[in-house]
Computed example of a mutant assay.
Amino acid sequence: MDFFKRLEEHRSLEKQLAWEGSFQDYLQIVRLRPYVSQLAHSRIYEMIKAAGVEQLDGGNKRYKFFVDEIFGLDRTLEKLVEEYFHPAARRLDVRKRILLLMGPVSGGKSTLVAMLKRGLEKFSYTDLGALYAIKGCPMHEEPLHLIPRELREEVAREYGIHIEGELCPSCRMMLETEYDSKIENVMIERIFFSEDNRTGIGTFTPSDPKSQDIADLTGSVDFSSITEFGSESDPRAYRFDGELNIANRGVMEFQEMLRMEQRTGQLAIS
């Protein structure tokens, strides 16, 4: 393999897939490809399904997404996909639950989570896994959140999509101060999931309860900027860099969740 040739091809791919335009332009993409606005559970389910599904004897299924790294757990993985990800993708109540993986050491739990995270990174480079965000938003906000609630039902019906969620404080202020509340002019960009770049994939590992800071999950006030913006309630004075913030629209891994300090665990579950 010519490493530098492959490196150049990788750079070229990123340039080809890069996109930036106004919210008005983004709506045209949504009209042609409604799946770009799918929610996180739906995106994971489509990613797993896109790798292929093999029908086994007895009516069982083998999801090829897992076959290269997880062995002997076909029935367990089928239940995971069919009883959790599939109904969650259909926006049933199961999507409100945290997926807790429990089992013996070397049972495949960490491998499964790593596969989902790496899979999402690769899937976001494909057409089916493409997703877009408000440019400059620290939480990679879904652009459809710009649509006023009073108009969402009409837009959802016309475009065949589902709109769920509200603008984060940072985007709300940006809309008012930089775009004069004209949502059609807000700039949108295509994003790619990356754990290394802290985009759409978060990982939290509990540490000593005496030193564990809840800001690791939620972000925190940047006190050095209060003098500039005048108040700690100003969104510009807040750092949206907690693991829950960066995992927005993707996947969040809590390692050793049952060992969390009580206050942190309550936040994660609420």
Results as ranks from 00 to 15, higher is better:
K61V: 02
V81Y: 09
G52P: 05
E82I: 02
D68G: 03
V67S: 12
E46Y: 06
E69A: 10
G58I: 13
E46T: 10
T76N: 13
N60Y: 12
I48W: 10
F71S: 08
V81Q: 07
V81K: 04
V81H: 08
R75L: 12
R75T: 11
G59L: 10
Y63N: 11
K49S: 05
D74K: 04
V53M: 04
E78A: 12
I48N: 07
V81E: 07
E46F: 01
E54I: 09
T76K: 11
K49Y: 07
K61A: 09
L73K: 15
A51P: 00
D68T: 12
G59F: 08
K49V: 08
R62P: 01
D74S: 11
K64N: 14
V53F: 01
R62I: 02
K79T: 13
A51Y: 12
V81R: 06
K64D: 04
L80D: 03
E78M: 12
E54D: 10
V67T: 14
Q55V: 09
K79Y: 05
E69P: 00
Q55F: 07
I70M: 06
E46M: 07
G58Y: 13
V81W: 09
Q55M: 10
G58H: 09
V67Y: 02
G52Y: 01
Y63G: 10
L80Q: 03
V81M: 08
E82T: 12
F71A: 07
L80S: 03
K61T: 03
K79F: 07
F65P: 07
E54T: 11
G52S: 08
N60K: 12
Y63W: 06
L80I: 13
G52I: 03
F65Y: 13
E46I: 01
F66M: 07
Y45C: 04
E69R: 15
Y45I: 00
K79V: 14
D68C: 01
L77Y: 10
D68A: 14
F71W: 13
E46Q: 14
Y45V: 01
A51S: 14
R75S: 14
L80Y: 08
D68R: 14
R75D: 13
I48A: 05
I70L: 15
E78T: 10
E54G: 00
L73N: 06
D57W: 00
G59H: 04
Y63C: 11
N60Q: 11
G52D: 07
E78K: 10
D74E: 15
A50I: 02
V53Y: 01
G58P: 04
G58L: 11
E46S: 14
E54C: 03
E46G: 00
R75C: 00
E46R: 15
N60V: 00
T76D: 11
Y45Q: 05
G59M: 08
V53A: 08
F66H: 12
V53T: 12
I48P: 03
F71T: 07
D74R: 01
I48T: 05
R75N: 09
L77N: 03
K79W: 00
E69Q: 13
E54Y: 08
F71R: 08
K64Y: 00
G59P: 04
T76R: 04
G72D: 08
I48Y: 09
K64P: 00
Q55C: 00
E54K: 15
I70K: 06
V81A: 04
A50W: 01
L80A: 03
D57T: 14
A50C: 02
E82K: 11
Q55G: 01
R62C: 05
I48R: 05
E54W: 06
L80E: 06
E82C: 01
L73T: 02
K79P: 00
